[in-house]
Design a binder for these strands. Structure first.
Lengths: 189, 189
DNA sequence: AAACAAAACTAACGATTGTTAGTTTCAATC
DNA sequence: GATTGAAACTAACAATCGTTAGTTTTGTTT
């Protein structure tokens, strides 16, 4: 077992605990118990509790940033771009629902450089989204509501997927994508 | 200054700190500093840190429960009921955005009876919402998507309002209600 | 079987946590 | 001006926190 594998196991176990109680409420002894070892042994594989958090969050944030940049730079129509954003969120959620809890709720416990790095990525992400919606309204592809409301309502649904999707056992990923796109784009009435 | 007033001030200051860092990461010394007093002095007005959290959360949860029960028992049409739910969330958000952070993110740190009480209220709330949507699809008022997706996507937007609305300076409450209802019900396309 | 490295362990540290006990300050009431 | 009660204070507690140092176990390679 390579050390990197063991670190990944620790990060994964930490993701689950952080999801349940939040970063601050999870102790290194809690995490060690979940791994079946003692707290001090964790430090053979990681440098600090903080390193675990930043690994979880920064990796995910970079994944979203890359995905959004590709979509943003493409020459698709607005509606297609928004559909791609929805799919991006669903894909990431399916792959790492636990980690998304930290991304959403524990980012403020990042320290120094990583906090700034995260906040810049989040700002850029939201701004890219905003620009896409802006162009969509100009091209009459999207109704001319307050842009912030559209961005916020869409994004908050996508960001909260991690809480909800793991509980749905009988929904196929492709059906979820289709229905989610319909609900978010065309409404429910 | 009546003791009840002072307690309310403490709860309000705690709501702001809990919103910024979460319940577990806020110490009684942090809270005392925000109040301009020493940590031990807080205990002249409150019984424990836990009491502050349960005051914040249970009060809000009961407010939502009462609102939902009224809407649920009314004889309005489905669409009107959903509009009323949207208004309920906006009203509560305007009145106590800070406390909603704890309701959303720190409920798991409630102890014993209050945790069970909260979880029952949350379950009933979601179930009432689900029944309303269910009836709406049967009456053809609402498109027949997967009901869980509709409930989830609507509720996650409404629950996250507290994060977003305080940042919007120039949106009037009535305009917000109208646009939010349009976006959630009719979609953006 | 000897040697070695990875990964576990025990024990402990200094700092911080929520909270309590006992005391002082201060404004209102008599 | 003496009394009183609310609300602040100082000092300290036992428990727990993240982390470190030093040691032992384990499994693989020679």
């Amino acid at each position: 077992m390579k050390p990197e594998n063991r670190k990944q196991e620790i990060v994964k176990a930490a993701s689950i605990l952080f999801k349940e109680k939040g970063y601050s409420a999870v102790t290194m002894r809690d995490l060690a118990k979940a791994m079946g070892i003692k707290a001090a042994s964790l430090y053979n594989h990681i440098q600090s509790k903080q390193e675990i958090l930043s690994t979880i969050i920064i990796d995910l944030a970079e994944e979203f940033t890359e995905g959004m940049n590709k979509i943003s730079e493409s020459d698709q129509k607005t509606i297609q771009k928004i559909e791609n954003i929805i799919e991006l969120h669903i894909d990431v959620t399916l792959r790492n629902a636990d980690g998304l809890a930290s991304l959403n709720n524990d980012w403020m416990h990042l320290e120094e450089d990583n906090l700034q790095y995260f906040e810049k990525m989040r700002y850029d992400y939201e701004n890219n989204f905003r620009k896409i919606v802006q162009k969509g309204t100009e091209d009459k592809e999207i109704k001319s509501f307050n842009i912030e409301i559209i961005v916020f309502s869409t994004l908050s649904t996508l960001r909260t997927l991690y809480l909800w999707y793991p509980k749905q056992k009988d929904i196929d990923a492709d059906i979820l994508k289709k229905d989610m796109i319909s609900v978010l784009l065309s409404g429910i009435v």
